[in-house]
């Protein structure tokens, strides 16, 4: 199937679960900002959970299809329509030849994911289809989608074809859907759970308390590289020189102006600002769904809790995987 990009929207890129293994060469990880939504979207159309899919940001993307096919939309609610009709989310949808899928604007969350049965056919670079914008590699020619672009999706497997038939009998989309609320939170006021960062104790007493007691606002400088926050300034007890070392998704670093920056999917591999906190992996998808001007409350948790939360969500995904497989085999 060929997908035609009628309107690219604000920022639409191909992403998978990221480009691991080359951070020692300075190659960033990238990948879906909200990895739970990407994984569920792929599972819904019978793909491997780490297949490449579209990440659509906030508004404006319009796509057209040249064949009947299966797709699934997950993540933030960007008011998707198919030929003018509301497109249901979190379930497999049968799309018709010539149909137009349009994303109006976000009413809930920030990023939607679209997975296509058979996956998106682009050459993996360093074993990943994720788009690395600054280096111009991965995804579709290393860049965001543009008006007039086309890309190919894989052939539907025999299983997917029979599944498509099953969905067709359910009047174009599955009558069931995935309950995502235990995996991601789409609220625009959120409590995000945080571990103390490696330099936490180098901050003054006030700053150590303020991080967990005062709300922070996500500024408009919020992209795939990092989220700049606005709120009470945080400061070190004594200045000291920190050498560059590894940083990761969810690292909260404090530059000299005292306003926190949360590093996101397209972060650099290393950084030299002190790290006051680290957002737990289980909350990264929810964080990725915040829009500029939304409010964040940081809550401290232990490393053990962080691991348990991650295991809990992984178990939910396992159950989901089995549930979807059963539906597909019906």
């Amino acid at each position: 199937m060929t997908v035609n990009v009628l309107q690219p929207g604000l920022l639409t890129t191909i992403q998978d679960l990221g480009r691991y293994g080359s951070q020692k060469y300075g190659v960033i990880v990238s990948g879906a900002m909200d990895s739970y939504s990407l994984r569920v979207a792929n599972l819904l159309v019978g793909n491997a959970e780490g297949e490449g899919a579209l990440e659509i940001t906030l508004f404006g993307t319009t796509l057209q299809f040249d064949k009947d096919s299966l797709l699934a939309i997950t993540g933030g609610d960007l008011q998707a329509t198919i030929d003018g009709e509301k497109a249901p989310m979190w379930r497999p949808i049968l799309i018709r030849k010539g149909s137009i899928l349009r994303f109006k604007s976000a009413i809930n969350g920030c990023r939607a994911y679209v997975a296509f049965a058979g996956g998106i056919i682009v050459p993996p670079i360093m074993e990943s289809k994720s788009t690395y914008l600054r280096a111009g590699i991965g995804g579709l020619q290393g860049r965001a989608l543009r008006k007039g672009d086309t890309f190919e999706c894989g052939e539907m497997s025999a299983l997917n074809q029979s599944f498509a038939q099953q969905v067709e009998e359910m009047t174009e989309h599955a009558t069931w859907s995935v309950n995502f609320s235990a995996l991601i939170n789409l609220q625009q006021v959120q409590t995000i759970r945080v571990l103390k960062g490696t330099e936490f104790t180098r901050f003054d007493q006030d700053s150590q308390q303020t991080l967990f007691s005062e709300p922070y606002t996500l500024s408009t400088q919020a992209d795939r590289m990092g989220y700049r926050l606005e709120g009470p300034a945080l400061s070190l007890a004594d200045t000291f020189e920190l050498l560059s070392e590894s940083v990761t998704y969810g690292t909260i670093q404090i530059p000299p102006n005292g306003q926190p920056i949360i590093l996101m999917a397209d972060r650099q591999t290393t950084g030299g600002y002190p790290k006051i906190g680290q957002i737990i992996s289980a909350d990264l998808s929810s964080l990725a769904q915040l829009q500029p001007t939304s409010t964040i409350h940081f809550k401290e948790v232990s490393l053990e809790e962080a691991e348990n939360e991650l295991l809990k969500k992984e178990r939910l995904l396992d159950e989901l995987k089995m549930g979807i497989q059963l539906k597909r085999l019906q």
Partner: peptide
């Protein structure tokens, strides 16, 4: 998953699950 050297430390990325 991978290791990343810095001046005086080595970061090891792993899948906790």
């Amino acid at each position: 998953i991978e290791s990343v050297p810095a001046y005086n430390n080595l970061t090891i990325y792993y899948n906790p699950v």
